[in-house]
């Protein structure tokens, strides 16, 4: 089964053709990162305007590069949320129109399900599993007993992990997007700043606003005293504490839920320190640990095409009234 997948939830317009949920045939992505850099973040109206300029160009390029005609596609999968509403809408309207003109089924895909299924493109998911979803908008621990069944066991109470990384980068004067820069500089520094550990308790929830505020206050106090911040040391101190707590809670979840498989998902899955620490811990505990290649960590339509296949198998089909939604929980709680 060939699925044409569309992902436009933020500043990337991405389309992909995926076979049977496991094989990426072709992906075309138009990224706007340079457009938004000068604003220090994604400007929703500018993202929407850019998406509508690119939507048919990306579709055309995908068909040309893959050598597919639209008739060869069996279904259309599309991210309907969560994300920027104006951005999502372009992808959803495009997907609905393709379904309307071709009569092919329309499959609604939750963005986070897509991130988890990015792992399925590397290696078929094995169950039961725990997924650690870490991105600019999410920090969730998810239990999956089978395909396309998601139970959230813990989540952030305030900022998402990627948000905290970006904020720390910004206050340290680093460029946008800050997460990868913090990760890189953390390798060069020492753990010298006495920052609080973020919600180091018995729950599976996370909280990053405390450590974020501690960094912000420290930087401001030092600058008022005329002292320079040792940026590398700040990055190391921040990253060490955040990753330590995340790894600890993830490993505990695996044990308690008797899951022998861990997958990492979301934009922050590209963080090298988090990958290494999880990898070491999983080796010690004999857990199968998988994470997607960098290209599948950031927003892309291939992961949506993979998730769409299993959504379809589980009877998730939308009609032409499918709407884009900015906030949506897909967990069966």
């Amino acid at each position: 089964m060939y699925i044409l997948a569309i992902e436009s939830s933020c500043d990337e317009m991405s389309m992909s053709i995926v076979k049977d949920g496991v094989e990426e045939i072709c992906t075309v992505t138009n990224t706007q990162i340079d457009i938004h850099k000068e604003f220090g973040g994604v400007v929703p109206e500018i993202a929407s305007r850019s998406h509508i300029e690119n939507v048919t160009i990306v579709l055309d390029e995908l068909l040309q590069r893959s050598g597919f005609t639209i008739d060869k596609i069996d279904a259309i999968g599309v991210t309907y949320g969560p994300g920027l509403i104006g951005s999502l809408m372009i992808g959803v309207q495009c997907a609905k129109t393709i379904s309307l003109v071709t009569g092919k089924p329309l499959i609604p895909v939750h963005h986070i399900a897509g991130h988890i299924y990015a792992n399925n493109l590397e290696k078929r998911l094995e169950f039961p599993l725990i997924a650690l979803v870490v991105s600019g908008g999410h920090t969730d621990l998810v239990y999956m007993g089978r395909d396309y069944s998601f139970k959230r066991i813990g989540s952030t109470l305030d900022d998402a992990i990627g948000e905290a990384y970006d904020k720390v980068a910004k206050v340290c004067g680093l460029s946008y997007p800050g997460g990868p820069v913090v990760d890189k500089l953390a390798k060069l520094g020492k753990d010298t700043y006495d920052l609080p550990y973020p919600l180091d308790d018995d729950s599976y929830d996370f909280s990053f606003s405390g450590i974020k505020s501690a960094v912000v206050n420290l930087v401001h106090n030092e600058s008022q005293r005329g002292n320079a911040i040792r940026v590398e040391d700040m990055c190391t101190s921040f990253q060490n504490r955040v990753v330590k707590v995340v790894v600890k809670k993830t490993m505990r979840a695996l044990k308690e839920y008797k899951a022998n498989n861990l997958v990492l998902a979301g934009g922050v899955a590209a963080n090298s320190y988090l990958r290494n620490e999880l990898s070491e811990a999983c080796k010690r505990e004999n857990i199968n640990f998988g994470y997607p290649r960098i290209a599948y960590c950031t927003d892309n339509a291939a992961m949506i095409g993979s998730a769409a296949y299993y959504a379809y198998k589980n009877g998730k089909i939308a009609d032409l009234t499918l709407n884009a939604v900015a906030v949506e929980s897909f967990y069966n709680e």
Binding site: V55, T56, G86, M89, I90, T97, L100
Partner: peptide
């Protein structure tokens, strides 16, 4: 406007 234009351009591309 973007809703209508997205429908029109996708439709136009397909046919």
């Amino acid at each position: 406007v973007r809703i209508g234009v997205t429908i029109a351009k996708t439709y136009g591309f397909l046919i």
